[in-house]
């Protein structure tokens, strides 16, 4: 195992172990997601006969808000228990810190999606087809890349500032709007009776481009976040 992959494994394992012991992030994210979906249902789901066209939008608005919540938990142990210097003193490249952070956010998002996606189809879609799930899983993975990379970059700045609980959503959500547009579009394209593959592929491609662009931005700037 190379030094970098050993460091990566240690950083990711550390996050997951902390989460398994304290169980603060993933459960809160899942509960939040379920409540948010119900809020959408009571907000406007009542007023339409068939919510299938709304399902993609509900799913991704919910997931985006949940992602903001989960990303906001990044670096909280480091901040509260003042361990950040320990990470920064170690001979770990700053970009590896970002990748490891993004990987743990990615895992949380997958946990939430495994529960949320079936629920959305049960709650809001008439006649869901089994193949839809595979297609939506691809959208989830493509969207998670961008969400977790950009979220980790912004969280690193927000968590060590004042008013962080408010700051992160304000910074993060406007930049997430393209992800909501594209993932909701891709989901909508394949959910229910519709099956518009070119549209679906266009959106998924966009999500990947989004991830690549913010990966480059993060690669170029993340070094500076901790360079006091």
């Amino acid at each position: 195992m190379t030094a970098a992959s050993r460091q990566f494994r240690a950083l990711l394992l550390k996050d997951l172990r902390l989460e398994l012991r304290t169980r603060q992030t993933a459960i809160a994210m899942v509960l939040f997601a379920v409540v948010a979906m119900m809020a959408f249902q009571f907000g406007f789901g009542f007023r339409v006969d068939d919510t299938t066209p709304l399902a993609g939008g509900i799913l991704w608005a919910t997931l985006a808000l949940t992602a903001v919540l989960g990303v906001g938990r990044s670096f909280v142990p480091e901040r509260e228990q003042r361990v950040l210097d320990g990470l920064l003193l170690a001979p770990v490249s700053r970009n590896l810190l970002l990748v490891a952070r993004a990987a743990s956010v990615f895992v949380y998002l997958v946990v939430v999606e495994v529960i949320t996606v079936p629920l959305v189809t049960v709650f809001f879609v008439q006649d869901p087809a089994a193949t839809d799930f595979a297609l939506i899983a691809v959208v989830c993975v493509a969207a998670n890349f961008g969400i977790s990379i950009l979220g980790s970059l912004l969280a690193a700045m927000a968590v060590f500032s004042r008013a962080r609980e408010l700051l992160l959503p304000v910074l993060f959500l406007p930049a997430l709007l393209p992800v909501i547009i594209a993932s909701a579009g891709a989901t909508h394209a394949v959910l229910g009776v519709s099956n518009d593959m070119p549209e679906y592929q266009g959106y998924v491609l966009f999500l990947l481009v989004y991830a690549v662009i913010f990966a480059l931005v993060a690669y170029a700037t993340y070094d500076h976040v901790f360079d006091d």
Partner: peptide
């Protein structure tokens, strides 16, 4: 809002990073 939540040299640094992030998200939006 980011600027008003951070002080000193860090304020300038975080602002610079965010101006890069925001500019990248304009064409994407």
């Amino acid at each position: 809002m980011l600027r008003s939540s951070v002080d000193g040299e860090r304020q300038a640094r975080y602002s610079a990073i965010f101006s890069v992030v925001a500019f990248a998200s304009v064409p994407l939006s």
